[in-house]
């Protein structure tokens, strides 16, 4: 058997990619030619060594990193969005409320509470400006005795009605120039939104910082279409407070009251049932 023939055949025999006849022929040749025998042994030895070196395991902390990456994948939200019956009504509702509007939702007859979206004046009407809106929803909110605001309430607030502004559960920044929603306020069984707006330069920085912040605080986030939605599922009260503190430090001072108030309510509630969603809308 010529060298080029047996050399090629050794590989196929070792890899079990040959016929029975070829295998038999090679081993018969190997009995007569020590070079062939050595080539076969070397190929098997290399395999043995390579397989011995294939026992690496990922570091213990990597499993958790991978788990979080999987949990935070956009895919879950995209799949959820593709299933109309699964997608939360408030998410769609939030998207319908664009620009500087508020989205209000309450938990229904037994559970209702209020929140106010505070928008910085003059940030979205400048030419070439871009906005980031951060919405926050509490899915299973604690019971709070309050009256959900109506469109008329929003209108009243926009018109500077002090009575509407000072209602106990409506925390409103004096002088807010935001608009009341044109559409009817959408009531959902799982919470409410508030929004913030920053100018274009701050938008990207805020978004990047917020994403990093959420990663550092073990908070899942996802992306839907062009919007960023950060889902703070079952996160701890401490994390939620940290997030709100971060928002307070990086977004409008005016939101502080509303968000702090919200944080206090979370603290009062069973933290395991809170499910917060934060949305970034880059326009």
């Amino acid at each position: 058997m010529k060298r080029e023939v047996w050399e090629e055949l050794v590989d196929r025999v070792v890899d079990d990619e040959c016929t029975a006849e070829e295998k038999r022929a090679l081993y018969e040749a190997a009995e007569r030619n020590p070079e062939i025998r050595e080539a076969i042994d070397a190929a098997l030895r290399i395999r043995e060594l390579l397989r011995k070196t294939a026992g690496a395991t990922v570091p213990p902390e990597f499993s958790e990193r991978l788990r979080l990456a999987i949990e935070r994948s956009d895919v879950w939200v995209e799949r959820e969005a593709a299933r109309p019956t699964v997608r939360p009504a408030s998410t769609g509702a939030a998207r319908r409320f664009g620009g500087r509007r508020f989205l209000w939702a309450s938990t229904g007859a037994a559970v209702s509470f209020a929140a106010v979206a505070l928008l910085a004046s003059g940030l979205v009407d400048g030419a070439g400006r871009e906005a980031v809106q951060i919405g926050m929803r509490v899915d299973k909110a604690p019971e709070i005795a309050s009256t959900a605001p109506t469109n008329a309430d929003f209108d009243a607030m926009e018109n500077g009605d002090e009575a509407a502004r000072t209602r106990p559960t409506i925390l409103r920044r004096p002088g807010n120039k935001g608009e009341a929603p044109k559409e009817p306020v959408v009531a959902t069984p799982d919470g409410f939104y508030t929004r913030r707006t920053v100018d274009s330069e701050n938008a990207k920085r805020l978004l990047a910082e917020f994403l990093r912040f959420c990663r550092e605080n073990d908070v899942a986030y996802a992306k839907i279409d062009g919007d960023f939605e950060l889902t703070l599922r079952e996160t701890t009260s401490e994390n939620r407070r940290a997030i709100l503190e971060w928002l307070d430090a990086n977004a409008r001072k005016s939101e502080e009251r509303a968000e702090t108030n919200l944080a206090e309510r979370w603290d009062e509630a069973d933290e395991s049932v809170c499910d917060v969603r934060v949305s970034f809308n880059v326009e």
């Binding site: 990922v58 990597f62 990193r65 991978l66 999987i70 994948s73």
Partner: peptide, 9 residues
């Protein structure tokens, strides 16, 4: 490890 993570994502 990055490859592992990217693979699963």
């Amino acid at each position: 490890l990055d490859v592992v993570q990217e693979t699963f994502l």
